[in-house]
Amino acid sequence: MSWDNELLERAHKIIELYPQKRSALGPLLYLAQEKDGFISDDSIVEISNLVDITEVQVKSVSSFYSMYKEEQTGTYLLSVCKSISCEINDSRSVINSVKEFTGLENYETDQDKLFTFEEVECIGACGGAPAVQVNYETVEGLTPEKTIEMCEWLKNDKPEIIVADQLQNKFGGTKSFDWAIEDNTGSAYTVPGFQNIGTAKEKDN
């Protein structure tokens, strides 16, 4: 399906930020992923028209970056870090508990399209290892038990907006540093929540 006017309007606003149209390609790919949960062929056509490059050029870029997904993601993207600080702080057990709960292997999505699971490289939460991101919202200092609790909560409560601070308060442990500032904004898609692409969502309390 092609993009509706609301999405196109957001796309044009993004393009205006940059001296050259093509620089907007990355952010526009996030819009595509917000729309379908992955980068669809239709969106590739749409984006190639928006920034005046060929479809193959768009695909070449979208396939390069790991955060643009080629297959449809679930509602919640569970990204478990396995890089060095997490590895030596037993990220294996967190990975295993996610696998056990969801029944998924790396890069798989369940049939209900609820969870997508992936093992990822360093997410910059090394002081709070092992760490996980849910829709790119970080939670640090997890244990296998807390990880399962978090997955259960996601499955049962189905929160619309994922906020790092809420995850951390409910399920997290040791942090990389004192987060200090209260925060109530997060993401509602398998895309980072960020104002410039219109994906930052505030949670009602």
Binding site: M67, T138, G186, P192, G193, F194, N196, A200
Partner: peptide, 12 residues
């Protein structure tokens, strides 16, 4: 970096 959604929001 894309994974730093929260830091990016603060900066924006």
């Amino acid at each position: 970096r894309g994974e730093y959604a929260k830091p990016a929001r603060r900066v924006q």
